[in-house]
């Protein structure tokens, strides 16, 4: 099972990299771009856990280590075929 985890800044936390990319995209003519958030992407390979357990364990990993919930939020998907 593969957990695909995205960690991004919470709303209200300054994201200068996202802002710079946003401006660069607008400068290139992508005027439809309204907002850019730049974050981290992690892939975690899991073994010997059910989908239900994985859900719980990955959420625990995010809370404890992978995200600092003072400034970051996280979301993930679990891919059982991988």
């Amino acid at each position: 099972m593969l957990a695909k985890i995205h960690v991004t800044f919470k709303n209200g936390v300054l994201d200068p990299q996202g802002k710079a990319v946003h401006h660069a995209l607008n400068d290139l003519g992508f005027n439809e771009v309204r907002d850019v958030t730049l974050g981290k992407y992690l892939e975690i390979k899991l073994e010997g856990v059910s989908a239900e357990e994985a859900e719980h364990r990955v959420s625990d990993m995010c809370e404890k280590l992978l995200a600092n919930t003072v400034i970051e939020s996280y979301r993930y998907t679990l891919d059982p075929t991988d």
């Binding site: 936390v13 300054l14 200068p16 990299q17 600092n68 003072v70 400034i71």
Partner: peptide, 17 residues
Amino acid sequence: LLEAGLLPGALLTNRSQ
């Protein structure tokens, strides 16, 4: 100390990156 939750808040990358 911030990551350990012994102090309030967090530190982000400097505004200038």
